[in-house]
Structure formats: structure tokens, C-alpha cells
């Protein structure tokens, strides 16, 4: 039919704006996210060459190395540290987010800005500040010595605890922001209805507030746990080379040690952990609803 042919023409014309708009971002993501990540999976199954290069001989060696106790210890330690960081960030962040969410809108906006300002300071310099504060002859030890609480300086630095302080203070906003946005959406009338129906504050919290804000909690878990698991700057700055997490091990494989397949295998492990958490998340919430910014 003549009219069908006529109508088919403009379809092609509309391809251009579509391609021009969605094309660049799609191409970028494919070239610089998908292909590199697929390639790293391939590398993880290759052998290490004699000069620290990649020999394209398939092997499971890197994955066996991961299971080696020395490396496996590091992985467990990283998981534990990331877990504790996440737990503490949520325990500290939830009440904090709740307090902000219950303030009037303009006050809440100011409090959120106040939360973000420290993060405009270079993150390494903020970490370094903890070191300055707690170093052997630093202000904290000086104070303790002066007041006579201790007789000789405590070595706070280069310990797991200080690394933890660094992790928590660096990650806290990533817990507070998603928590705040879900709690803020929680309608007061729901809590009043619960009270009206005879629930006390505690029951209302457990039965209403917590379940409704759960997607926010899980967003917080993802946004704190996964980065903490891969971070190496905090351990580098505050661990002084004594505290090593997965991130440090990976970085070292691409630096001084030069074992790319092992680094790749550890990266694949991080990807798997991430995918697992995201998979669980998507069971009960949409990824688009995650408050990432």
C-alpha cells in the first residue's frame, strides 16, 4: 500500500536525534566499563609471565592463590573491617539522619550542607589529620601525659582501630544521605496511626519506621560496605603499610609486585561481592531508587 511506504520514511529520519543523544553515553559505557571489566575477567584466568607480564596461558592459579591462607586472611580481615564500618555507620547514621529528617525543611537542608562541607576538604589530608592528632607526640598523647593518665605515649597510629576511625568518618555521609531521604519521606501520620492503634514508641519503630525505611538502610549498606571493601587510601594513610586490605593487595599487584592475573582475580572477587549485594537489593527495591548522589 502506498501510504505504508510513506509512513515508513520518517521513522529513519528520527534515528539521528536518538543516536546523537543516547549514542555517546552508551559508547562510553561499553568502551570503558563493560569491555575493561570483561577483559579483567579474562586476565584473571591467565598466567603470570616471567617478567611480570601476562602470559596468555589459561590457568586457575590466581584463584588458588587467593585461597592461600596469607591472602585469604587479608580477604577475611577486609570483609570484617568493611562489615564493622557498615554496621557502625548505620548505627551512628540512623539516629543522626532521623534527627535531621524531623527538623523543619530549611534547617534540615542546612544540616545536610553542614554534613557535606568536610568532604570538600581533600580526603587524604583529613585522614592525615587523624594521624597528626594521634601520633606519638601529638595532641592526644600530650594531653594524656600531661594529665598523668598514662606514663608513656600510647601508639594509636598504624593500628586497625585508627584505620577504622578513618573508614567510619570517611563513609558516614554515604550512610546518612540514603537514610535521610527515606526517613524524610516517612509520613508522620503513619506513626500517629500506629500510636492511635495502641503501639508504644518502641513497637511503632520496630513495626512501622524500620520496615518502611529498610530500602534506605540497604542502600546505606551497599554504599558503605562495597567502597570500604575496596578502599586502600585509608589503610595507606593510617595503616603505615602494616594494615593491608584487599584494595592494597590489588594495587600492589599492579605496582611493585607485578602479578596482574592475581590482581585481576581479586578484582573479580570484589565484582562478585558487589553483584551479590546488588542482586539481593533488587529483590526488594529498584536500583534507580538508590540515592547515590
Amino acid at each position: 500500500m502506498n501510504s505504508t511506504g510513506q509512513a515508513a520514511m520518517p521513522k529513519k529520519k528520527n534515528l539521528l536525534p536518538k543516536l546523537a543523544m543516547a549514542g555517546p553515553v552508551s559508547l562510553w559505557m561499553i568502551l570503558f566499563v563493560t569491555i575493561p571489566l570483561l577483559y579483567i575477567i579474562v586476565i584473571s584466568f591467565m598466567s603470570r609471565g616471567v617478567f611480570g607480564d601476562v602470559a596468555y596461558k589459561p590457568t586457575l592459579e590466581s584463584y588458588q592463590t587467593i585461597l592461600d591462607p596469607t591472602y585469604f586472611q587479608v580477604i577475611l580481615k577486609s570483609l570484617k573491617a568493611a562489615g564493622i564500618t557498615t554496621l557502625l555507620c548505620i548505627l551512628i547514621g540512623y539516629p543522626f539522619a532521623y534527627i535531621i529528617a524531623r527538623k523543619p525543611k530549611d534547617v534540615a537542608a542546612k544540616m545536610i550542607t553542614l554534613l557535606m562541607i568536610p568532604f570538600w576538604t581533600n580526603s587524604l589530608m583529613r585522614l592525615n589529620a587523624w594521624l597528626l592528632l594521634f601520633q606519638t607526640s601529638g595532641p592526644v598523647n600530650n594531653f594524656l601525659m600531661h594529665t598523668g593518665l598514662v606514663s608513656k605515649p600510647i601508639s594509636f597510629i598504624y593500628t586497625d582501630s585508627l584505620v577504622m576511625v578513618g573508614l567510619i568518618t570517611n563513609m558516614l555521609p554515604f550512610a546518612v544521605l540514603p537514610l535521610y531521604s527515606t526517613i524524610e519521606k516517612l509520613e508522620r501520620s503513619l506513626l500517629e496511626a500506629s500510636a492511635d492503634l495502641g503501639a508504644n514508641a518502641r513497637t511503632t519503630f520496630m513495626k512501622i519506621t524500620l520496615p518502611i525505611t529498610f530500602p534506605g538502610i540497604f542502600s546505606a549498606i551497599i554504599l558503605v560496605f562495597i567502597p570500604s571493601l575496596g578502599i586502600y587510601t585509608v589503610t595507606d594513610m593510617l595503616g603505615g603499610g602494616k594494615v593491608l586490605y584487599i584494595g592494597n593487595i590489588i594495587k600492589n599487584q599492579f605496582g611493585s609486585i607485578r602479578n596482574w592475573p592475581l590482581g585481576a582475580a581479586l578484582s573479580v572477587l570484589l565484582i562478585l561481592v558487589t553483584m551479590l549485594l546488588i542482586f539481593i537489593y533488587t529483590r526488594f527495591a529498584k536500583i534507580e531508587d538508590m540515592e547515590v548522589v
Binding site: 500500500m1 501510504s3 505504508t4 510513506q6 509512513a7 520518517p10 521513522k11
Partner: peptide, 11 residues
């Protein structure tokens, strides 16, 4: 008629 949608068939 406005041109926001294309007719699949017709004039």
C-alpha cells in the same frame, strides 16, 4: 495532526 506522532498508515 500536530505532528508529534507519525501515522502508521494513511494520509
Amino acid at each position: 495532526i500536530a505532528g508529534f506522532e507519525e501515522a502508521s498508515e494513511g494520509i
